[in-house]
Design a protein around this nucleic acid. Structure first.
Lengths: 129, 129
DNA sequence: CGGCATCCGCCGGGATACTG
DNA sequence: CAGTATCCCGGCGGATGCCG
């Protein structure tokens, strides 16, 4: 009985987690959002600087990604009126809070990168027949 | 000098993080990998049970995702010889370790879901002109 | 049940050109 | 510099059918 009750509870909690994960993935699970948030983690950055710091992102995708993140309240867009035009992007408190789990993910990647690469090599050589 | 040195160090560390993030996103940044890992977090699960528990995944994508995750050493595939066929998928130690940062992400989503939804609604009403 | 093979639609996203 | 507008392609991924 006790075991069973525990299991039901944990199953419910697990379902909730899975649902949350799907939510977060729908929001920031695209190709660039996470990288943009990471690039803004330390300080506000201007548009071109962002584009230079995020390897491989196109102007179009940077614009779209920034707009979505602003819509979700993860960052703010500030126009400083001068010539040439100057627009700064900065994380909101919510956006800043996201950098904490992102850091965990990055740390995980750092730690297991070697293992994963090795596993791939082993798998590939074994399935090359 | 001291400030400058600190800044250079942090910039380097930041670049490393960004690189790690790109790595992890290239591996598990697709539409389903994270959800599959989450679905296996508690215990080994069979193919059909997985498909039922992950809402919306097709047979094809489940197969492909499982193969990639096995190749990366995040899970194991075990065939139990009986009728009807029975195949169990289970996380490896590496895969299990990934559930920790994933849990952080899910918790973040849980905590900020309301804020984000509200921000979206506000943005949408303001840009409906 | 647990797959694999094939076909195909869609859209994410790159390239390019143009504006303020 | 900081975008917007268009065009267009590749491949992700869904649907379907077949096999051990």
């Amino acid at each position: 009985m006790s075991d069973r009750h525990t299991d039901v509870t944990m199953t419910a909690r697990f379902s909730a987690v899975e649902c949350s994960l799907k939510d977060v993935l729908d929001r920031i699970g695209d190709k660039w959002s996470i990288l943009v948030v990471a690039a803004l983690a330390r300080e506000p950055v201007r548009f071109r600087a962002l584009q230079r710091s995020i390897d491989g992102i196109s102007q179009r995708m940077l614009t779209l990604t920034l707009q979505r993140l602003e819509r979700d309240g993860l960052l703010t867009r500030t126009v400083i009126d001068m010539r040439p035009p100057r627009v700064e992007y900065a994380l909101t408190a919510t956006g800043q809070s996201l950098t904490i789990p992102l850091r965990s993910l990055a740390d995980w990647a750092e730690e297991h990168r070697g293992t994963i690469t090795a596993s791939r090599a082993a798998w590939d050589s074994q399935h090359s027949s």
